[in-house]
């Protein structure tokens, strides 16, 4: 047996002191799990009160009508107006007179959407050159 073994054996023979009485008293029972303790008296009182309040509110509050499922409706109106026509040339073809005219058109697009209070109006101006028969009405 070497010196270390002898000393270690002597150390092991020292028994740690027992738990003091006050500590032993505190440790009679294991700790209660957190969050699993018995409900307090306050909780027993609060639950029926909360239920009663909910029922009372149910009587006095106006019934809520569930909104109809939102359905988006889009209306679109298009309109083209001839605002100007200018004759550029008149030619005879097979005993018929034809006129080359330059026309000015205004196109208006109006869009209305049910999901938005805003109306969108789009106006564009375009020029066209067209051949048309000359009429003498």
């Amino acid at each position: 047996m070497n010196d270390d073994s002898e000393l270690e054996a002597m150390l092991r023979s020292l028994r740690p002191g027992s738990l003091p009485a006050d500590l032993r008293q505190n440790l009679t029972h294991p700790p209660a799990p957190v969050g699993k303790g018995p409900p307090s008296r306050l909780l027993w009182l609060a639950l029926p009160l909360a239920a009663a309040a909910a029922i009372t509110l149910g009587f006095f509050l106006p019934p809520r009508h569930a909104p109809a499922p939102a359905e988006t409706v889009t209306l679109r109106q298009s309109q083209s107006r001839l605002v100007e026509s200018r004759s550029l040339e008149v030619v005879r073809v097979d005993d018929e007179l034809w006129e080359l005219a330059e026309q000015k058109w205004v196109d208006e697009d109006l869009t209305l959407c049910s999901s938005s209070p805003v109306a969108i109006k789009l106006t564009t101006t375009r020029h066209e050159r067209v051949w048309q028969p000359v009429r003498f009405d």
Partner: peptide, 16 residues
């Protein structure tokens, strides 16, 4: 005391 006192074991244990 951190350890149990043993009066029969002599001074060596207490000293240790």
């Amino acid at each position: 005391p951190w350890f149990v006192t043993d009066f029969d074991a002599g001074d060596t244990r207490d000293f240790l």
